[in-house]
């Protein structure tokens, strides 16, 4: 079993889930995946289907149009699957806290395993967040 767990940490495939962000966080995530920061070194790969995902990268604030879809997508993902909130919006709604179109924050809908604050977070911060998540999971 230990080998399986180790390989889970060695190849986390990420699925990019945008809940109406302002697009800056998404661009930073793309930055992490492209050659300059090259997270394939750690086995991280961007996948197109939720069925292949190990980590959901959530950006943006849930609104009335999509908050149920977040829940639905999380249920669709094969477990074990971890949610990472990227950006202040996804961490705690930021300035949109009292907005008319903001029912709740991400962690009230699905369990969030790691928060990466910043508006938008630097690519280095996102990689550091990954590293911390993997560290914590490997101790479990």
């Amino acid at each position: 079993m230990n080998l399986l767990k180790k390989s889970l940490l060695k190849s986390p495939w990420v699925f990019h889930l945008a809940l109406s962000p302002c697009n800056n966080c998404d661009i930073e995530i793309l930055d992490v995946l492209t050659p300059r920061y090259d997270v394939e070194r750690f086995g991280v790969q961007l996948v197109g289907s939720i069925r292949h995902a190990d980590i959901l990268l959530v950006t943006g604030v849930p609104n009335y149009k999509n908050w149920q879809k977040l829940k639905y997508l999380y249920e669709q993902a094969p477990k074990p699957c971890f949610v990472v909130a990227v950006g202040t919006c996804a961490c705690g709604r930021g300035v949109f806290k009292d907005s008319y179109n903001s029912p709740c924050s991400v962690d009230e809908i699905v369990p969030v395993s790691a928060y990466i604050p910043g508006c938008p977070p630097k690519p280095e911060a996102i990689i550091a967040g990954f590293a911390k998540l993997i560290n914590v999971l490997s101790k479990k």
Binding site: L4, D38, R41
Partner: peptide, 21 residues
């Protein structure tokens, strides 16, 4: 111009997929 994955990456991928639901 990237570094690329480690030697046994494909093995890790396969083993990980075995452990998933």
């Amino acid at each position: 111009y990237r570094q690329g994955p480690p030697l046994l990456q494909n093995l890790y991928d396969f083993l990980k997929l075995l452990a998933k639901e």
